[in-house]
Design a protein around this nucleic acid. Structure first.
Length: 426
RNA sequence: GGAGAGGUGGCUGAGUGGCCUAUAGCGCCGGCUUGCUAAGCCGGUGUACGGGGUUUUCCCGUACCGAGGGUUCGAAUCCCUCCCUCUCCGCCA
């Protein structure tokens, strides 16, 4: 959420930010509601002060005078109630409108309408050229009896799957490896709820707007399945005022992630690139409201992800996401895309976002500075390792001509020390 | 799912319609005193929004006692709904 005071003092800045994100925004209604709301608040405060004074007087008055005084006080109530109702409606509309105002993108965010205009900032590793006909992950997975999409669809609908045998184990190995690497860097590991109240979805910026992408429980429970551990982890300290001494908070969490993928029919239909459920290790940083510090954290969490990809010996590139491809909550975002031979291209595996206080303001997550003043925190997050997409990259990039898959040394301790998985295929 | 008990400030905990401007203690901050430590004494100690100002440290108003409604001139206190915690029973991985 944007600070209403910024909208009051510099609406042009907020509107320019929305333009860069290609998000339609009209602040005039918000400004109007804000002015109306403040005028009403002043009237209400004054009337309440009068009511309070009158009530106090009645309490002290002689019993025989009370009835008369109460009668007078009662008359004033009607107008106050009416004004309070109008104020409530105004505040509700203002709040709802404010939740939809996008965060202002950083200077460093490139102009552009969609992901085709994201700007590559780094490339690591050389995409492998195969001197044999390589198998894509589905062909390889089915030949090795590692992947079963047919039964996955039968059990749970399209875009669902079973992983079997060594690939199932490899998923766990990669998650465990990613987790331990982050813990070694000082991050605290969390096991988190993946069903959360919808106000947490609002707090992290997914709602309003992202309802179609989330699985929601029916009216019996106001709960949603999260699309990422970012949601419960970022909201961990909701409604708290943190001590300066306990910041920054560095968290890492492994969770299942659920995505409806509404509106993607016909897109990425082959294989496990786009699925409804997967495993992911996510990193979240919570710190003081210092833009420079946030930039440093942003660089740090990108490095953490690179570190994992390099250890897995997977070629990748980093893109600076352009305005039009940026979500409403982000200040800036770097996507990391890992080389996937079956796509003959890089595919998104990581997404590193910086929010400033956008999420913290919605979640009311604050800290007290050295002077004792209270501020909203800054939040950031990035993927460490996302299971199926990185499994695609792993088995496609590291396959041998005989159909076996080579394991990078970093994963071997988690796979019984083996250098190869899979049987020799004819 | 059934029955019961609860939710008050950073923490503990009092408060059953006006004396609440929310006791008290602990903690924390500042000061004083004391030959160290310890103890004692005095003062201070929430958040949000709005208004004003001599515009970082001030003043005023309003709101906040789990959340939201209601009753009342007046609600921490009474009523309703919901959320959460605990105990017992049932069911259950």
């Amino acid at each position: 959420m944007i600070d209403i005071k910024l909208i009051r003092t510099n609406p042009a800045l907020v509107e320019a930010g929305a333009r860069k994100k290609r998000i339609a925004l009209d602040l005039s209604r918000i400004v109007e509601l804000d002015n109306k709301s403040r005028a009403m608040q002043q009237d209400i405060d004054r009337m309440r002060a009068e009511q309070n004074a009158a009530a106090k007087l009645i309490g002290k008055a002689a019993p025989e005078e009370r009835a008369k005084l109460a009668e007078e006080a009662k008359r004033a109530k009607g107008a106050l109630k009416e004004l309070e109702d109008a104020y409530g409606a105004c505040e509700a509309e203002l709040k709802a409108a404010l939740l939809r105002v996008p965060n202002i993108p950083a200077e460093a965010v490139p102009e552009g309408k969609d992901d085709s205009e994201n700007v590559e900032v780094k490339r690591w590793g050389m995409p492998r050229s195969f001197d044999f006909p390589f198998r894509d992950h589905i062909a390889l997975g089915e030949a090795q009896d590692w992947i079963d999409v047919e039964r996955g669809a039968r059990i749970a609908g399209s875009r669902n799957y079973f992983l079997k045998g060594d690939l199932s184990l490899l998923e766990g190995a990669m998650m465990r490896f990613a987790l331990e690497r982050m813990v070694a860097k000082g991050f605290t590991s969390l096991s988190v709820p993946t069903l959360v109240r919808s106000d947490v979805m609002v707090g992290t910026g997914y709602f309003p707007g992202g309802e179609e992408q989330a699985y929601r429980c029916d009216e019996r429970d106001d709960l949603c399945l999260v699309g990422t551990a970012e949601v419960p982890v970022t909201a961990l300290h909701q409604d708290e005022i943190l001590k300066l001494s306990e910041l920054p908070k560095l968290y890492v969490a492994l969770s299942s992630c659920y995505r409806r993928e509404a509106g993607t029919y016909g897109k990425d239909t082959r294989g496990l690139y786009r699925v409804h459920q997967f495993q992911k290790v996510e990193q979240v940083v919570l710190d003081i409201a210092d833009p420079q510090r946030s930039i440093e954290h942003h660089e740090m969490i990108v490095r953490n992800a690179e570190d994992v990809l390099q250890a897995l010996e997977l070629p990748y590139r980093i893109v600076n996401v352009c305005g039009g491809d940026l979500g409403a909550p982000q200040i800036q975002k770097f996507d990391i895309e890992t080389w996937m031979p079956s796509r003959n291209n890089y595919g998104e595996t990581h997404s590193a976002s910086r929010f400033h206080d956008y999420q913290a303001r919605r979640l009311s997550m604050r800290y007290r500075d050295a002077e004792g003043k209270v501020h909203f925190c800054h939040t950031l997050n990035n993927t460490v390792a996302a299971s199926v997409r990185m499994l695609i990259a792993l088995i496609e990039n590291h396959q041998a001509a005989d159909g076996r898959v080579w394991l990078p040394p970093a994963l071997r301790p988690y796979m019984g020390g083996r250098e190869w998985i899979g049987k020799v295929l004819s």
